[in-house]
C-alpha cells in the first residue's frame, strides 16, 4: 500500500509540474490561451511591417482547415519547401470546425511552422458557439485592414447567415470607408478578402449588390479573395472589373500562389 501511495505522490508531483492547460479541460468552449496564442493578427502584422515589400508581392492563400489537421501539416511542409520568397500567407477562414478554442490552438500550432507571417479572416464555423469571442481574443477584430507596399488588404466578415441575415454583415459602410484612400496614405489598390463569397446562399442576399457596388465604386479593387466553397472558383461574377477568386480547402490539398503588382496580379493554383 505504501508503494501505491508513493506512486500517487509521484503522479501528483508530475501533474503539478506539467502544463495543466493540456491536462485539464474545464469546458470545450473555454477560452484559455497562452501568451503566444493571443492577438495573433497584431503579432503577425508586426512581423509583416518589419519586412520590406518589393514591387511584386508574393502571397500564399489557403483556408478551410476545419478538422483537416493532417492536410494542414502537409500544406505547411509543401509551402515551406516549394517557396522561398513569400511575403505572407492568408487563411481564408473556417480555421475551426466547431468554433472551439482547442481547434484554433491546434491550427496555430501547425501554422506557426510556416516561414512567413499569416493573417486570417473569420469563417462561419469560427462564429459557432462562443467562437466570436474566441476569434477576437486569439486573432483580433472580425473586420480589419492593413497596408503592405502598394496594396491595402481589407479583411471582412461576410458570414451573414451566422447573424441571421440581420442586414449588418458584411458592414458595407465600414468597407466603403476602408476602400476610400485618406490623405497621406500610400496604397494604390486594395484586395478585399472574405470567407463567404457574395453570390453564396450564406451571404446576406440583401447586401450582395451593395457589397459588389462598394468594391466597384471605390475604383481601387480589381481582385477579391474568398474561401468557404471547398473548391476552386475564379470568376468575374458581376462585370469584368473585379475578379473573385475562391481557393479550395486544405482537405483538397490545394492552395493559391498569388503575385500582386501595381495594376495587376497573377493567380496560380498549386496542388500538393
Amino acid at each position: 500500500m505504501q508503494k501505491t501511495f508513493k506512486l500517487l505522490l509521484v503522479i501528483l508531483t508530475y501533474f503539478s509540474a506539467s502544463s495543466c492547460d493540456d491536462l485539464f479541460e474545464y469546458h470545450p468552449n473555454q477560452i484559455r490561451l497562452d501568451s503566444d496564442e493571443r492577438n495573433l493578427t497584431a503579432t503577425n502584422l508586426e512581423r509583416l511591417q518589419k519586412q520590406q515589400p518589393g514591387d511584386t508581392l508574393r502571397l500564399i492563400v489557403m483556408g478551410d482547415t476545419q478538422r483537416f489537421y493532417d492536410d494542414a501539416v502537409d500544406f505547411v511542409k509543401s509551402a515551406n519547401s516549394r517557396f522561398q520568397d513569400i511575403d505572407f500567407v492568408i487563411h481564408q477562414g473556417d480555421i475551426s470546425d466547431f468554433g472551439m478554442t482547442q481547434e484554433h490552438k491546434w491550427v496555430q500550432d501547425i501554422l506557426k511552422d510556416l516561414k512567413w507571417p499569416y493573417l486570417t479572416v473569420v469563417g462561419n464555423h469560427d462564429l459557432l458557439a462562443n467562437g466570436s469571442k474566441v476569434y477576437q481574443q486569439m486573432y483580433g477584430p472580425l473586420n480589419y485592414s492593413f497596408t503592405y507596399g502598394h496594396t491595402k488588404f481589407v479583411m471582412v466578415d461576410t458570414n451573414g447567415r451566422e447573424y441571421s441575415f440581420n442586414g449588418k454583415v458584411p458592414d458595407i459602410n465600414w468597407l466603403a470607408k476602408e476602400l476610400a484612400p485618406q490623405q497621406g496614405e500610400v496604397w494604390q489598390q486594395a484586395i478585399v478578402v472574405s470567407h463567404v463569397p457574395p453570390y453564396d446562399a450564406d451571404f446576406d442576399r440583401k447586401l450582395e449588390a451593395s457589397y459588389h457596388h462598394a468594391l466597384a465604386q471605390s475604383n481601387m479593387v480589381s481582385l477579391s479573395l474568398f474561401g468557404h466553397i471547398h473548391n476552386w472558383n475564379t470568376d468575374y461574377l458581376y462585370d469584368n472589373k473585379i475578379l473573385y477568386h475562391g481557393t479550395t480547402t486544405v482537405k483538397n490539398r490545394g492552395f493559391t500562389y498569388l503575385k500582386v503588382w501595381e495594376g495587376g496580379y497573377d493567380i496560380r493554383r498549386i496542388a500538393y
Binding site: 501533474f15 493540456d22 491536462l23 485539464f24 479541460e25 470545450p28 478538422r67 483537416f68 489537421y69 493532417d70 494542414a72 501539416v73 470546425d97 466547431f98 472551439m100 482547442q102 481547434e103 491546434w106 501547425i110
Partner: peptide
C-alpha cells in the same frame, strides 16, 4: 468531436492531445 478529429487526423492528433483529466 475530439475523437472524430483524432480518427480523421491520426498523424497530428493522438490520445494525449484529445484526452483530458478530471
Amino acid at each position: 468531436e475530439y475523437i472524430i478529429s483524432y480518427v480523421q487526423n491520426p498523424k497530428y492528433l493522438g490520445p494525449g492531445k484529445i484526452f483530458n483529466l478530471a
